[in-house]
Design a protein around this nucleic acid. Sequence first.
DNA 1: AGATATGTAGCTAGCATAGTTACACACTCA
DNA 2: TGAGTGTGTAACTATGCTAGCTACATATCT
Lengths: 147, 147
Amino acid sequence: MAISSRFIVSVHILTLLAQSQGKPVTSEWLAGSASTNPAVIRKLLGMLAKAGLTTSQLGVGGGALLARPASEITLLDVYRAVDEGELFAMHHESPNPACPVGRNIQAAMIGTLEQAQRALEGELAARTLADVLDDVLAGGHPQLQEA
Amino acid sequence: MAISSRFIVSVHILTLLAQSQGKPVTSEWLAGSASTNPAVIRKLLGMLAKAGLTTSQLGVGGGALLARPASEITLLDVYRAVDEGELFAMHHESPNPACPVGRNIQAAMIGTLEQAQRALEGELAARTLADVLDDVLAGGHPQLQEA
DNA sequence: AGATATGTAGCTAGCATAGTTACACACTCA
DNA sequence: TGAGTGTGTAACTATGCTAGCTACATATCT
């Protein structure tokens, strides 16, 4: 487990917002479904709002809303909103530049690592919240996706 | 940074072993190139040996060796040896089964997450230690890889 | 026998995640 | 206008993982 649960929890609450059809949903309700704390949800909603995926309404009858249609929000959008950064860590200390391998290993690997990360992100980009909601409403994952 | 530095450091030391052409290399020498502690290297070598990628010789003139040719060790082999497990974390607490979304969200997402992880692993599988050594000896990443 | 090098255990510091409480601020409705 | 509701954010805590470090038993070679 390397990618934090923020991602799946964010997909979870965004799916709930997609299902609510424009009615604001409170962080307390979202927390009840995701089995966590309302403050955790609000922290996630803060990140999602900063990324332009959600908006919020204060006061009575308020709550969170999708900022655009579920079919226009990809899982990559969600991933980038809450789990930023490079996927592969480098050496903590810079390798020894006096060694030919130490001097060049990072530069030699960067291309491959970026390519691998892009491959993962490409899969996430191919799937929208609307797809996820369809699968959830179908009761799980009977909905097959193309290989 | 979600995938630990164990991976890049392991690639680093395996590349050194590939370069040494069958002469054992001590953990102290490897630690000097990777700018870390010999005990950390030995811990990694333990995992790599368990995965069948390296062997060790004790005593004077001893050290670590590749267990098979560099061209037959992929980066995926290395990744699996030192950084096991699922890439995506799930909810810490199980979602609320009384909510239709909570009840189905994990099952609905598993397929997509596994597919994304496989896409990343596929890129790592396409590259061997021999490729990495070539790039390193070429002085960095002038060696282009196909898109 | 003595020197060398691994394998492993145990401890520490640092960092990220996520849970929790608390409170100021904004908005709605009566 | 004032009460009630819900967000946004800060602060603190517990937990777990990573990685650095020391120490030592064990195996091998000369």
